[in-house]
Simulated assay, not measured.
Amino acid sequence: MTSAGSPALPAVERTDRLRPSDVRDVLALARTAGDADGSDPLSEPVLLHIGRDGGSPAVHLMLRDPDGALVGYAHVDLADEVEGPWAELLVHPLRRRRGLGRQLVTAAMAAAARTDATGRLRVWAHGDHPAAGALALDLGFERARVLLQMRRSLLAPLPEPRLSGDVSLRAFRSGADDAAWLEVNARAFATHPEQGRWTVDDLRVRMAEPWFDPAGFLLAVDGSTGRLLGFHWTKVHHDQGEPIGEVYVLGVDPDAHGLGLGTALTIAGLRHLHGRGIGQAMLYVDESNAAAVALYTRLGFARWAVDVNYRRG
């Protein structure tokens, strides 16, 4: 029952597989919300999952108006047995403050509880909106992780990368470098909750994307042994007006720390993007990673936006 004058909330549609029409609706809703908020409401892993309708097990939750228009969506990923389920959600900008966000989070909690007996759930809030924080607190979540988006103009001067000893840079070779890259990526991000667990399938899904360019996937190798020491994988976004480059993944093997490879690889990747005519670069970094934040700040990056991960259980 609803109070007088309060519209009834729509029923939550739950499915393990989106129809092509659902995919179109979700992507359209994401564009609308992103344009209104100034930040993308869904992360790359969710968009890859939606676009391919497969991969890790997930639940899709949808809210529709009586006329069938999609006004709310939540993606609940159930694959991570270590950290537990995680979710992202969005509500149409004109339908907010009506209880739809709470309804989606509550449904996501129920979906997560079906596979995780402890009731754990992590929810990403892109843009760090006060309303999201208030809802999370009210539902028993705590602020657990902060992801910074930083940006830098590529029109400002960039020095030459300085490589020590017999270290050289070359482009990634699809098929030949896959295994070595995955090994170094796992070592470089051993404590990272997502990046360090990438599999060959995670790598190949991204290499199949239209934006993938091996020339912008730079590897630092030991000239005497050929061993991979570090990498800077760049990406170019063409869906945000003017193209913008990204420091997509930057990592250094722990055994190669102290050689200045983090700085050299960052500069080399930025110079590559500048050479493609890109005028601005972005990156994501955990706020708690003080060393990385300091490196990027020294190289001219500044804080642009914030994403927050809320945890329950």
Rank of each mutant, 00 (worst) to 15 (best):
D53F: 00
D80I: 00
A33P: 04
L283D: 05
P41T: 12
V200C: 10
P93Q: 04
Y310M: 01
D213M: 09
A30N: 01
T15Y: 05
L135V: 01
D178A: 09
S3I: 04
T115G: 09
R170S: 00
M62R: 14
G275W: 01
T15H: 00
L299A: 01
N289Q: 02
L158M: 06
D307E: 05
F141M: 03
F189K: 02
G277Y: 14
G251Y: 03
L100K: 00
W86N: 12
T32D: 07
A134R: 07
A107W: 04
R312T: 03
R298Y: 11
S3D: 11
H60V: 05
E160W: 02
V306M: 12
D202K: 09
A136L: 06
A171S: 13
H192I: 11
Q149K: 11
G226F: 11
R143F: 05
W211A: 06
R143S: 06
D128C: 15
R102D: 04
H257L: 03
H49S: 14
A117N: 06
D22A: 02
L137W: 12
V247E: 08
R95D: 12
S224Q: 14
F217N: 10
A110N: 14
V105W: 06
G313Q: 03
S56K: 15
L47T: 13
M62Q: 11
F301L: 13
V167K: 10
H192S: 00
V249C: 07
M62P: 02
A108M: 05
V293C: 15
V184I: 11
H238D: 13
D222C: 07
R95I: 02
G226N: 09
P20R: 00
V205D: 02
V46T: 13
A179L: 15
F217V: 14
P243L: 14
A179R: 15
A291C: 12
R122V: 07
